[in-house]
Design a protein around this nucleic acid. Structure first.
Ligand SMILES: [Mn+2]
Ligand SMILES: [Mn+2]
Ligand SMILES: [Mn+2]
Ligand SMILES: [Mn+2]
Lengths: 219, 219
DNA sequence: TATTATTTTTAGCTATGTCTAAATTTATTT
DNA sequence: AAATAAATTTAGACATAGCTAAAAATAATA
């Protein structure tokens, strides 16, 4: 049986492994979990002892097949609970992360599949991230971001790159949500910002940073 | 912020205080939480330090007003999650206790009231126990049990005295659930057992112990 | 390549929560 | 009332999980 901390570390390593390839270093994990490198080292050694990670001193860590399976279970739980919080309880997508961070650790051999059934097998969470199925099979995350578009291009928003409240609050403010149709009106070399029409409404300005964090389907 | 263990102890003391009056002794708590008296002593001293309980060495513990308020919050969470598990996810009433035991510890200032709204403000949990409202106001538990009835009496089942899986599984087997109409056909002095018709069906036999654990409304 | 800087690990400390065994207090019997 | 039994607390141990500071390894730079 895994502890909350073990699960959090597995999930973190899983996510970091998807962003960059190769072994994951201690500092990156510590930063992501808001903890210290020394603490991560302890945990990573523990995971290795349990056969959930392979770890070489000073060389970083990667998940074993077994570890990835466990990580995917946590990701599945996290995302299904997020769907529940937004769709059933009426939370906004920027409010659910911290609660899901706790709910993902509830232990039960039946709960999450019953929740999945109740929610009618959603494929994506409120941030557009794919939900692993009961066997741990997960769709790959999209790769196209808004900043590849040129003036005149149109697209649909399908996912937010990270679930940080700051990004989501900003998108809410400019009325961009999953499924929004965007049309790039202009691009400004000076600061890399975009002028964009949201759902054929008025044009707004998006910074490079925002544009890099919105996954899209180009139309 | 209370830890899981603190919350479990508060809830336990609250429940025991409702069964017997006067201070609650360490052993009773240890037995109920499946832990040891020495551990309970530590915890109870901690609760006293935090102003949640009043404690006199060797004399037992009782909750302060503040402690009871916290206990009621946990009870509210536990019972609302039980309603969710049974009504929405399709669990049986004998399967939800252990999961609710975990869910009751999820920290959020908004979650439980949203869940309450979602469930349309249920007044009782799946075992017939009253659910405290958002202000901590709770209906009193019924007091009439099946064993006060005489042959010829009829009643409605409103609550099971404890939520132990053993009792609930037995009641399931004989098709007794909340709302069932029971008619006492016979009482046997020899072993204190009852012959009872369930919902005007065939007669079954209930032991004294079972009869003492079913709360009823006499008709 | 030698030196310096950065990253990572180890060592040692702290806090929580649990346990067993011994000591103490309270309750029950002779 | 004294002796014995039972309940309760204390003392000391262990496991988990976090931290800081020092040591060691690796990476970057002169
Ligand atoms: Mn978590
Ligand atoms: Mn998400
Ligand atoms: Mn609990
Ligand atoms: Mn219940």
């Amino acid at each position: 049986m895994l502890t909350h901390s073990e699960e959090n570390h597995l999930k973190c390593i899983y996510h970091l492994s998807n962003k960059s390839n190769g072994a994951i270093n201690t500092n990156a994990i510590a930063k992501s979990l808001e903890t210290k490198a020394a603490s991560v080292t302890d945990m990573v050694q523990k995971l290795a002892t349990k056969g959930l990670a392979s770890y070489l001193k000073y060389k970083g860590v990667r998940l074993t097949t077994k570890g990835e399976k466990e990580a995917l279970k946590v990701v599945r739980k996290h995302r299904l609970w997020e769907v529940f919080l937004v769709k059933e309880l009426g939370y906004n997508w920027d409010q659910v992360h911290d609660i899901a961070e706790q709910l993902e650790h509830i232990k039960s051999s039946t709960l999450i599949d019953k929740l999945d059934t109740f929610l009618e097998y959603p494929k994506f969470d409120p941030h557009g991230d794919p939900i692993p199925d009961a066997n741990g099979v997960i769709a790959s995350k999209p790769t196209t971001t808004l900043n590849i578009l040129k003036p005149g291009d149109t697209c649909t928003v399908i996912c937010a790159k990270d679930s940080s409240s700051d990004l989501l609050l900003f998108l809410d403010k400019v009325h961009i949500s999953l499924g929004s149709k965007l049309e790039v009106i202009d691009y400004f070399e000076f600061d890399g910002s975009y002028s964009v029409k949201v759902d054929n409404g008025s044009a707004i300005t998006l910074s490079t940073k925002v544009a890099e964090n919105i996954f899209i389907d180009k139309l």
